[in-house]
């Protein structure tokens, strides 16, 4: 089993190519890998629990771990209590720990 970290920086309401992350993360998870999606920059805009048509609930249903960068959330006025319940607020420090973890592959999108 490998660990995958997919860093999503894009706003899903601006570009439909965020579907790439959904399909890639879900398929990697189905194949038995540990998969985390780290939302950063405009990638956090789908993290609000009242966001319509967010792609994130599907990822949670697939068992993908969802993390959101605290700095990016605050920049965009998103508070912890506004987050979709399956998203954990995280940090760049935590991302760096993931990046140097054993047998970890990382993709920036």
């Amino acid at each position: 089993m490998s660990s995958y970290v997919l860093i999503e920086s894009r706003d899903p309401f601006e570009s439909r190519d965020t579907q790439f992350v959904v399909e890639t993360a879900a398929e990697l998870k189905r194949r038995g890998n540990d998969v985390k999606v780290f939302l950063v920059q405009n990638g956090v805009l789908a993290a609000r629990k009242n966001a319509r048509n967010s792609h994130l609930p599907r990822l949670a249903e697939e068992g993908v771990t969802l993390l959101a960068d605290d700095f990016s959330l605050r920049e965009r006025g998103i508070q912890t209590g506004e987050l979709f319940s399956d998203i954990t607020e995280s940090s760049i420090d935590a991302l760096v720990d993931l990046l140097v973890g054993e047998n970890t592959k990382v993709i920036w999108h």
Binding site: S9, Q41, F71, I92, L95
Partner: peptide, 14 residues
């Protein structure tokens, strides 16, 4: 791009 800011944050943290 905000990519540069995020890169600097990652480098600093590491």
């Amino acid at each position: 791009s905000a990519n540069s800011t995020t890169a600097f944050r990652i480098i600093s943290s590491a």
